[in-house]
Every structure is written in C-alpha cells, then in structure tokens.
C-alpha cells in the first residue's frame, strides 16, 4: 500500500470516528458505527493472527521438535501437555451438553483455578509484598533531611488512611443504631483527601494523554488537507 493510500484511508477513518461529535444525525451518525464495526473486525483478525502465531504455532513447533522441551520431563511430556490442552479445549466446547456437565465443569474448574492461582501469587509477590515493603521502608537520609522525613510520614499516613477509607465496620450505639467511632470517621476523611487527590491527578493525566493524541490527529487532518 502506498504512503498516499495509507494517508487517505487514515484521513477518512479519522473523520468517520470524529463524526461522533456531530451527534446522531442521519447518515453522518452511521459513519461512526461503521468505523467501530471495521475496528472490531480488524481487531478480531489481528488477535487471531497474534494468538495463533505467538502461542499455538510455536507450541506446535516445539512439540514436533524433539530438541526443545518446556519442562524437565523431556520432549514427550510436551506432546502430552499439548494433547491434554486440545482435549480440554474440546471438552469446553461440549459445555451445552447437559449430560456431560460434570466433566466440562471439572475441566473448566482447572482453567479457572489455575488462573486464580496465578492471580493470587502475582498479587502477593508482584504487588502486595513489594508495595508494603516500600511504603514501610525508611529512606537513608531520613535523619538528616527533614523534608524527606515529612514526605515519608505523609506517604505512610496517606496509604494507611486511604486503605482505612474502605473499612466499613460499625458498632451499635446506645440506641442500637450502627455508628462509626469519631476516630474512625476522622481517619476515613483523611484517607478520602488522599484518594480524591490521587483520582484528580490520574484524571488530569488521562486528559493530558488524550489531548496529546487529539492534537496529533488534528494536525494530521490539517496536514492531509493542505
């Protein structure tokens, strides 16, 4: 495809997507939907291509090649793993068959449970432990640098109170109505300040990112028009 053809297609598709801003007008309103459907079709095709060429085909090549092995069990084990995966995928297709529900549910359970295990281990070792460690860690110059000490304390206080904000336990007061302690309520308010500031900054950063992309698109439209 030539450069000018790419530019022309980009120009037309960009205008089709931007037609959304004009609202649901006859004909023009359809252009946005058309662009979105084209996008979905092409995304599905690219997902299929990437999924096949990055996972399924390399795995098949590995299975066929006796020199390579995924585990310490040897090349033959790879073949069994691959065949088992094919069998599992085939069994997942049989889910609508009611008499085989016990089997398909068990197979589905393996997929769900292994995914949950990966999520749990990933969350523990990748996020929870490192973040807790870095939040509680003191910088080396904390005794000499007053600003660093204040910042570290503020980060610790902010993290803990922001986490406490999502704590909804209440006690019953003398009249039997659920009520939160004054201290708990105060901590939740402090936590909310940190959460609102974080959300505001994330929101502004997202606005800046989308503004950068919008500027690029508009400059492309003007360049193509010129």
């Amino acid at each position: 495809m030539t450069e000018s053809m790419i530019a022309l297609l980009s120009f037309v598709l960009t205008l089709m997507v931007f037609s959304y801003l004009l609202g649901d007008l006859p004909l023009i309103g359809n252009l946005y939907r058309l662009a979105v459907y084209i996008f979905i079709g092409m995304s599905a095709a690219f997902t299929l291509i990437v999924g096949t060429e990055s996972v399924i085909l390399p795995y098949m090549q590995d299975v066929l090649d006796p020199e390579t092995t995924w585990t310490s069990l040897g090349s033959r084990a790879d073949t069994y793993i691959f065949l088992a995966a094919l069998l599992v995928a085939l069994l997942l297709l049989l889910k609508p068959v009611r008499s085989l529900t016990w089997l398909t549910n068990s197979v589905f359970a393996v997929v769900i449970v292994v995914s949950a295990s990966v999520a749990v281990v990933g969350a523990l070792t990748g996020t929870l432990f490192p973040l807790l460690h870095s939040t509680a860690a003191l910088p080396d110059d904390i005794l000499t640098d007053f600003d660093a000490m204040v910042d570290t304390l503020l980060i610790f206080l902010g993290t803990m109170t922001a986490l406490y904000y999502f704590h909804y336990q209440t006690r019953l007061d003398s009249e039997g109505a659920p009520a939160q302690s004054r201290m708990g309520s105060g901590l939740r308010h402090v936590g909310k300040v940190f959460l609102v500031i974080a959300l505001g900054a994330i929101y502004a950063s997202t606005i800046l990112s989308s503004l950068t992309i919008l500027t690029e698109r508009i400059s492309f439209l003007f360049q193509f028009g010129a």
Binding site: I112, V113, A116, S117, A119, V120, G122, A123, L124, T127, L128, L131, L132, T135, D151, L154, I155, F156, L157, G158, T159, A162, L163, Y165, F166, G191, V193, F194, L195, V196, I197, A198, L199, A201, I202
Partner: peptide, 27 residues
C-alpha cells in the same frame, strides 16, 4: 510525589488484596 503516590499505593494495595481474597474464595 506524596499524596498521589500515597493514594495510588492504597488503590494498588486494595486491588491486590481484593485479588487475593477473590482468588482464595475460588481456590
């Protein structure tokens, strides 16, 4: 550096804890 970092840490810790709790319920 300070309040946004604290808020974002709280969000990430909350997400991680929720992932662990949901995951262990499945397990």
């Amino acid at each position: 550096r300070v309040p946004v970092s604290a808020g974002a840490r709280a969000f990430l810790l909350g997400i991680a804890m929720a992932t662990v709790v949901t995951g262990q319920r499945v397990l």
